[in-house]
Design a protein around this nucleic acid. Sequence first.
DNA 1: TCTTATGCTTGATATTTATCAATTATATGG
DNA 2: CCATATAATTGATAAATATCAAGCATAAGA
Lengths: 232, 232
Amino acid sequence: MPDSLHPEIRRLHLFSDMAEDRFAALMRGAYVQNFPPQIELITEGDSSDFLHVLISGAVDLFARWNGRESSLATVRPVSTFILAATIRDQPYLMSARTMEKSRIVLIPSQDVRSAFEEDVQFARAIVAELAQRYRSTIKMQKDLKLRSSLERLANYLLRHQARNGGDAAFELETDKRRLASYLGMTPENLSRAFRGLGPYGVAVEGNRITITDQTDLEGFAKPDPLIDGDLT
Amino acid sequence: MPDSLHPEIRRLHLFSDMAEDRFAALMRGAYVQNFPPQIELITEGDSSDFLHVLISGAVDLFARWNGRESSLATVRPVSTFILAATIRDQPYLMSARTMEKSRIVLIPSQDVRSAFEEDVQFARAIVAELAQRYRSTIKMQKDLKLRSSLERLANYLLRHQARNGGDAAFELETDKRRLASYLGMTPENLSRAFRGLGPYGVAVEGNRITITDQTDLEGFAKPDPLIDGDLT
DNA sequence: TCTTATGCTTGATATTTATCAATTATATGG
DNA sequence: CCATATAATTGATAAATATCAAGCATAAGA
């Protein structure tokens, strides 16, 4: 794996406080791979042999059961995924597939667990990361159980807008089919939900969303930092 | 707080590997409280001043939004709750109320964070705990998004049965109103769902459930270790 | 440019789930 | 033991969501 990638990975707070030599050791065992779009990287149930770090592209984390499939999260660079399975040395609970051409660093799980045992800073960083992710899944659960699909979409749009600078107009970064699955509805219903938000100040043109009435949409969506907040 | 409680708490794997003096220090700052049933211990949004350890009784973790309410988890003794908020020093995402008369140990969050900074064993135990809980919420999300309410109930019954010795007959340990909320449905629908499982070998008499045809129910429920497993 | 594949939308309909209202059980306190 | 409150069930209906079947865009390849 080229050393030129180290700084990017190092910037992740998971690795930023790690002792230099230990970080170098972790990287020595790691390797990079480039994947085309729509490749299934991981299948749920597999043993967790690698901690994955997405360097560029995008990855969809999803789950299957009884012939059905649902998208659970989108991974954007630079970010790790399936940390919990790696740490616990247990099978993946989610499958992963590339959404676009993606570059991914694979760090052997055994190395991660060793580093975790030996490096206190690293162990602390893992705690912070896991706690954060745990809280984020709780928020998703609240979103799912307390809101209708229309409300979920409205709040998704507001979150997405905030994350992208807050302008009234912005682009969806995923195709609508996956967005529907992520939000827990069918593509058909997502279409209808978009139209249903029209009266509350949402205009859709392909992937371009324009919030024409911020106040109105917020009035309908009732965003809550304990569900939609990035920080809390 | 009486020393007699130490062994029970110490038995939690979160604390079991902690250095003795540090554990004692943690306990010195802690105190016990007894609560009557239906007391709201924690309200989401509050700052996380204490790590809670349930010694006896039962606690419901739930969330509210826009006048709605949903049960997210049941805490049974002996077990900690709201660890992630404590560690991150961020507001609680869930509210908590006693389901029965409960005895709870409160450990100041600041003490927990100090111990976490200074005790490597403790930090590791926290990692294990958080990773476990994270995985458990992912399973819940899969359950919610991939299954219908009837399927969720069927699998809940099978899990509950397994956790209680595997006998064909067992008792529900929570009122049906809460079970409905936990499973993401209305009480009315839970009633109908129970009847709907009749043809698959489920008999209900008050809180007593009898699985009259294990094979049939499993055939319908299609339990999956990656959703329903305790271990994975 | 045309062709074709793919994703998105729309309408009609079915299914699932929720709501409302009433009734029946079950438990609790006097 | 009765009176009363609370929980659970049932039936009727409404709302939300999914499914099925076309039809319309959009983009990629011939």
